[in-house]
Every structure is written in C-alpha cells, then in structure tokens.
Computed example of a mutant assay.
Amino acid sequence: MKKVIPFLLLFLFICGLGLYFGRLVTAPEQNIVKVEDKTNQQIVEKEEKKKEEITTTSASLSSIGDILIHDRVYEPAHIGDGKYDFTPHLKNVQPLLNSADITMANQESLIGGTEIGLSSYPSFNSPYEVGDVLKESGIDLVTMANNHTLDRGEKAIQSAISHWNQLGIPYTGAFLSEEDKKNIRTIEKNGIIFSFLAYTYGTNGIETPKNKPYLVNRIEESNIDQDIAKASAVSDVVVLSLHFGKEYERMPNEEQKQLALKTANAGADIIIGHHPHVLQPMEWIERDDGKRAFVAYSLGNFFTGQNEDYKDIGGVLNITVEKKLESGEIVLKEPSFIPTFVNKDYHVYPLEQVAGKEKVYEEIIEHMKMWVPELTFAFK
C-alpha cells in the first residue's frame, strides 16, 4: 500500500501539470475567438447601418442637339474607298459626351449609308460613319423623328436602323414595323429605368407611305398621351423628344410651351426640343400632380454644316435623376449645360475654350438660364 501511494501522488501531480499547461495553451486561443466574434459582429452591424442609410439612388442623363450632316461636312471627311472618318470632328467634346450615365442625340440626317447615295440639303442622307463616331463618343440612344426622316424614303430608314442595330445603339421615333414601334425603348442605370419617345411636327410635306405610319412618329397629342402611359408603366422616368418650333428663332413660341405643358401633365418627366437649330432657354414645368418636369425647348445644332447667326452653337444638357428607394418617387435635380461651338472646319469644341468667343459665351449663359437661374455650366 505504501508503494502505491507515491505512484498515485505522482500521477495526480502529472495530471495537474497537464491541466495547468493546457489552460495556458488554450486560453489565448479562446480569447482570439472572442475577439474575432466581436469584430465580425461590428462589421455586420456597420453593414446593416449602411444599408439603412442608403435611401436613394441616382443616375445622370445628357442630351445633345441636332446631328445634321451637310456635304461640306462629309466630303472633307472622305478617306477613300467609300469610307469616312469623323473622329477628329468630335474628339474635343468626347469627354463631355462620356460624362453621364446615359447620353442621347438627335440624329436629324439619317445614316442611310453610301449604297443608296449620300446627299445634302434639302434631302439628306449621311454616311454610316456618323453613327460610328457617335458610338465611339459615348452616345447611348438616338432619336430619329424629324422633318428629314422621310427625305430618302423607307429604304434610308431601313438602312439607318440596320446600322444602329449593328452598333447596338437603340433608336426611337422611326421604326421598321408596327411591332418595332410598340417596343418602348428603355435603358436602366443604377436601378432607375428611363424610357424614350420621339415625335416630329411634320416631314417637309412628304407623306408617310399608306399603311406604314410606324415609319415616323408625328406629333398627335392623343397618340403621345397613350405612348407616355405605356412608357410610364414600364419605367421610372419618361424622356420625350419633340421636333417642334420655328427654325432660327431663339425663344420658344406659345405652341411649344403649351405642348410641353400638356405632355408634362400626361406624364413626361424630361422634354428635349429640337428643330430651331439655335439654342432656346430651359424651364421647369409645374405639373398638375404636384411634381415638376424639365424642358429644354431647343438644344440647337451640335454637329452640322450650318454656321453663323447662332446656328453654330449647341451644347450638352445634363440632369440628375434621383429615385427614393422606399417610395419610388422620382426627383429631378442639378440641371447643367455646357455650350459648344462648330468651327469653320466643322470641328466641335466647348464654347468656353474658343478664342474670341468670350462675349458670346457669356451671352449664351444668360440666355439659357433666364428661366432656370440655378442652371450651372459645369458637370460634376
């Protein structure tokens, strides 16, 4: 018995040492686990708090005026073998066109291409490469409803649309079929869906072929109201292009103002005007539903063969669209505008950078903000 006791004591001593050192080894590991759990919990809490704080999303829309290509523009751009290069013409304004989430343009002279023969005023048809440089410059959508849509007939429309499809640029205002027309063009950015519609006052006396009214959208209020309703059902923001007004008049007439008001009350959120070939001021429209729409009555000429008497001045409109995530409410804010200038070589520049045009630049600023005094002249 006496011999057993020392061994028993030794065994207990060794077990005690094992427990002691075991605690020393495992304790730090347990502490680390607790610290990691606490850190993970803090990260989760921060992420949840951040999600709670995000209550809105926003996207920016830019628009430019008329792309109207005369022979004096496309002939010098010919590089041989029926090919054209317009990249030098727009390289100085490409950063402006790439600044927004979505940028749209009014393609007034259809890009029917060389196969059907290029032509200038009064019956326009432009090279495909005009579309190529717009794609290269950041244009996301083009409107095609204007007084020159039917200049070269259905074939030019089909050829132009074929090339826009190859470029992956959506178009609106002129279509291939009734089914094509029914497809409301939409673009989604940052959780906000924009829809696009376009209409013209007329087509220079050229009648639309019988049974093919889809070839060009005309300004008929009942049809516009119906299309706005359809667009509103599939989008958050309805962008409406209207080819209206009087050529070369720098102020909108009463007919333009009344049509803008009616279409705004029908549900249009942003109204972009074309046709006068000169800049007309912008304006907020208070709608009957308590919201407000924004209208630019004319964005002038952006890329064209016209010059002098303000016909060589256009610009880039930019406006921010904010969406409240919980309610889906849309708020338009922060409109801005950068005037542009087409020089005698038909290259486009920011007007502010053109030597000798300082007074013109200041005049354009005052002209464009006369009804929107908060209008700024630099993009964020």
Rank of each mutant, 00 (worst) to 15 (best):
L351N: 04
A100Y: 02
K257H: 07
D227P: 00
T26V: 14
A260K: 05
A59G: 00
F341M: 04
L240C: 06
G16S: 13
D71R: 11
S241R: 01
N98I: 06
T55N: 01
A77I: 12
C15I: 14
T114F: 09
Y128L: 11
L110G: 05
L261G: 00
T143H: 06
M1Q: 13
I365T: 02
I79K: 00
I5L: 15
L68D: 09
K357H: 10
A268V: 05
L9D: 08
P339V: 01
E363W: 13
A378S: 14
L12T: 12
N253V: 11
D81R: 02
L242K: 04
K344T: 13
K83V: 15
M282P: 00
S60R: 02
I79N: 04
K323V: 06
T114M: 12
E286V: 07
K2E: 12
D81I: 14
E326L: 11
D309H: 14
I206T: 14
G202F: 06
I14F: 13
I161L: 15
I193D: 07
K257S: 03
Y349P: 00
G267V: 00
M370Q: 15
I5W: 13
P127E: 15
A268M: 00
G191S: 03
I338Y: 05
I139S: 02
L96A: 09
L317C: 03
M144C: 11
G191K: 07
I285M: 03
E48V: 12
Y199D: 08
Y74I: 12
L19T: 12
K2R: 14
N125V: 11
M370N: 10
Y349C: 00
K50I: 13
G16R: 06
V354H: 01
T39E: 05
G205Q: 05
M370P: 02
I364H: 06
G273N: 07
K38S: 15
I285S: 01
G113V: 12
K324W: 08
F302L: 03
Q256T: 02
P122G: 10
F196W: 06
E52T: 10
L259N: 09
Y74C: 09
E286T: 10
D236P: 07
P95R: 11
E308G: 02
E358T: 11
G205F: 05
N217Q: 08
I272Q: 05
Y346W: 08
S109Y: 11
A174L: 05
D132W: 05
D85R: 00
P122D: 14
P281R: 09
F196I: 10
S177C: 02
Q226I: 09
L96Y: 05
N40V: 14
N343L: 01
G16K: 05
V321L: 04
L118Q: 10
C15Y: 11
E362R: 12
L240R: 04
G315I: 11
I206W: 06
S298E: 02
